[in-house]
Design a protein around this nucleic acid. Structure first.
Lengths: 202, 202
DNA sequence: TTTTTCATTGACTTGATATTCAATCAAAAA
DNA sequence: TTTTTGATTGAATATCAAGTCAATGAAAAA
């Protein structure tokens, strides 16, 4: 008779991913509010009706992307803390991962996160997530790393929270710069870490 | 008979400013596309009809704000270059001005600029401005300052453009952080300038 | 008090887009 | 080839907000 359940599942997985990728680009470029379902559909190369076969609403799509971004950032920090080496070396590894990410398609996810953080025009569920502990989990999760680095003297003696804000501000800012100016000269990890290091070489 | 032309002019000036201030807040919080005229009107405490008495459209309002922001940033750089002292001292002065601005209402203007730079859902005229030389005028205008600082050895020997990107990324990032987290610990100017300095005094 | 001139209001029109759903299509097994 | 199932489509609907405009209000001079 028709396709097996297995085949259908595969089609569905592919379509869902295809739609999410398209939504990511469109949301990043136009913002959640200005993004039209028809934009997303045509970016994905299918009809707008099909989008609703896979997602309940525009809000659900956006929320899904925010969750993915949050998971991703949590993962990077987790891996960083599993790396061998001093706290500063772990931070360097993490920074390299992030910069590499920003250089590619990853910058879109940063824009989504920035929208989630700064815009009121975002689904209620996203606002909730941003208010909850999740919101600053990246900063919070990085604090132990910074504090450990201060112990070893590799990192500047200053309020760790302030340092974390400085660090993530720079990262976010770089993601934005990368998007506004495709060929902007990007710094390397050690350049970024100058805001944290006790005694930058050079 | 009725009011003098002078009186009317004053009323008009006040209203226009009042509406622009309201629009600034609403645009910053919700984004140009999601901002409703009725939001702006009620934020300003007047009817939506009146908004159209003063501005042709939502787009015109947004464009006006972007122009203001561009003028403002050009001014700060100009003033900085007129300050007494070494290039680094001029940069410090400029950074202090900017940080002070971000701490107050100024952060809203940064969000507007970020939207102007990164979003497609923006009036055509704004896109034009961003493409034209204006776009990176802040970076371009800062290059001479950085190069002069490299001459004196105060500033890191590296691609000046890369350094400028680093610096403005950090500034933009801080503006965002300030908005997402009202009480986030903010660094001082010297902390920010660590990304540029040849030898940070730790 | 009356008159004139604008600022101001809000009901109304218009256009756009999110969302729904009945109809169609396509693959595979019989 | 026929049948079945679920993916896929796009016309139709509902909603919502931008922008218009005729009517109102308020101040000041006569």
């Amino acid at each position: 008779m028709p396709r097996t359940e297995e085949q259908n599942q595969q089609i569905r997985d592919e379509r869902q991913e295809q739609i999410l990728q398209a939504a990511l680009k469109v949301f990043a470029r136009r913002g959640m509010a200005a993004a039209k379902i028809s934009d997303i559909a045509s970016e994905a190369g299918l009809s707008h009706g099909l989008v609703y076969h896979y997602f309940k609403s525009k809000e659900e799509m956006f929320t899904t992307l925010v969750k993915k971004a949050l998971q991703g950032s949590a993962l990077v920090i987790q891996y960083a803390r599993q790396q061998a080496g001093s706290p500063l070396q772990q931070l360097r590894w993490m920074t390299q991962m992030i910069l590499q990410n920003i250089a590619g398609e990853g910058a879109y996810l940063f824009l989504i996160m920035i929208q989630a953080f700064t815009s009121d025009a975002v689904p209620e569920e996203v606002k909730q997530m941003m208010d909850d502990e999740l919101a600053f989990s990246a900063i919070k999760a990085t604090l132990p790393l910074i504090e450990a680095g201060q112990q070893t003297g590799e990192i500047l003696q200053d309020d760790p929270e302030k340092l974390a804000v400085l660090y993530y501000s720079l990262i976010q800012g770089l993601a934005i710069s990368k998007i506004q100016w495709k060929d902007c000269p990007m710094p390397d990890a050690d350049m970024v870490l100058r805001v944290l290091k006790a005694r930058p070489e050079s």
